[in-house]
Design a protein around this nucleic acid. Structure first.
Lengths: 234, 234
DNA sequence: TAGTGGTCTAGACCACTAT
DNA sequence: TAGTGGTCTAGACCACTAG
């Protein structure tokens, strides 16, 4: 547990973290001077450890009283892909690949992926089902340079899992959402009437500095409501 | 500028902030030891000041090299109201109040506002225009207890400005978005054909621990695309 | 009054970077 | 080699809270 080579403030921090995780908000953490004695370190070292946990939102200090487990912060929506999102809603996510091939980027996709026109991209079109019924139709474009051998390695169910395993989990996304009516082609695939309401969702997903995914998805409006949490509390 | 009573680490922090705001990312900040000499304080005090600016995202440290102005972080979408949002898009926001009165909360509104059924709420319905043409129809419900005299004080153009002036600027919002077709009543007000595509946007806006606004807005899909930025970088 | 967190000092050694 | 940030010590005084 306690690695002798670990930095002292890290040792103290992780000791306190293990003590308080799971404790109810408002539970007291050890006092700084108690930790000074327990670890035989200077108080500044303990403060450095506690500071990190306070910044992280795990603890809060109350001057004159002590340090306590903080009420969990509300956090903005996590960036999720389809599979994760449907699982969160208690639905079974399935996908049927309609198209998966190497293409040359057109002007729109090239700009969105921060590439040059004609650069190699992976175009992946899927009909995605939730509890066996059509939910959406997704066209994803990926930068092939970032995903060598992706098409050959057998397509995964979850793109975001595949990205995560390559260290490309998106940390930032720019989404646009609009309402429209299904085209006849879309309607046929989604098993709705032509002209039925659909939600169009475009995403530009970024990992670090790299644009890893650009996608356009059309959702059946009768089956899908988009939820977004904004802001950062406390 | 420098208040003699101010804490030393605050003095140092604000001195550094004033030096580097406006500087290009990558510009060097003063070294810690330079600030030690300039202010005649201990190095830990300088580090406390710099730590705050690093946490804030203004500076970044590079071990062995120095401290530099950080690349501005991408931040998740700010929680904005209609007026702000339209101004950001370069459109002139105008509103026409269709209804503004005290009501008793129904079950849905009461639950959303964390009130009891029958509690007093303010119901404010507006037809909102952008560049003189109808953009959306908004029904906002406000907790009257939090906004004493709101109805009597003359309705503002921007609800969010009014909330901000009372210290109730939302810091957290839960939005849901869906696609639909306009009802005949909505179509008439929005000046579109009945059955035209619309985007329905519901919001529950929270300031601190209090739910300050619950609203349902129906946007003309031909005029409005919702943009959302998610995640927190660096 | 005893304990808490908030602030601050005046040093120290280390690994790393740049010249 | 000189300078940087990273870590750490062993104290100190303060304002505040609680018993």
């Amino acid at each position: 547990m306690t690695d002798g080579r670990a930095l002292k403030h890290v040792q103290v921090r992780e000791y306190v973290r293990s003590l308080v995780t799971g404790c109810a908000p408002g539970s007291p953490a050890p006092s700084e001077r108690e930790l000074v004695h327990r670890f035989g370190v200077a108080r500044m070292t303990v403060r450095q450890a506690m500071d990190a946990l306070v910044v992280e939102g795990l603890l809060e200090r109350i001057p004159g009283r002590g340090t306590f487990v903080a009420r969990p912060r509300r956090t903005a929506s996590k960036i999720t892909g389809y599979t994760e999102e449907m699982n969160r809603r208690g639905l079974l996510a399935e996908s049927q690949t309609l198209l998966a091939r190497r293409e040359q980027a057109g002007p729109g996709v090239a700009r969105a992926l921060s590439l040059s026109e004609g650069d190699a991209v992976i175009h992946w079109r899927r009909l995605r089902r939730a509890d066996a019924k059509p939910m959406c139709l997704e066209d994803a474009y990926l930068n092939e340079v970032l995903l060598p051998g992706f098409l050959q390695s057998g397509m995964p169910t979850s793109l975001y899992d595949a990205l995560e395993s390559r260290g490309l989990r998106p940390t930032w996304a720019e989404d646009s959402i609009t309402a429209d009516k299904a085209t006849t082609e879309e309607a046929a695939l989604l098993e709705v009437e032509a002209g039925a309401s659909v939600l169009r969702h475009s995403r530009r997903a970024i990992a670090g500095e790299k644009v890893v995914e650009v996608s356009r998805t059309v959702y059946r409006a009768d089956r899908f409501t988009l939820w977004v949490q904004l802001g950062q509390e406390s």
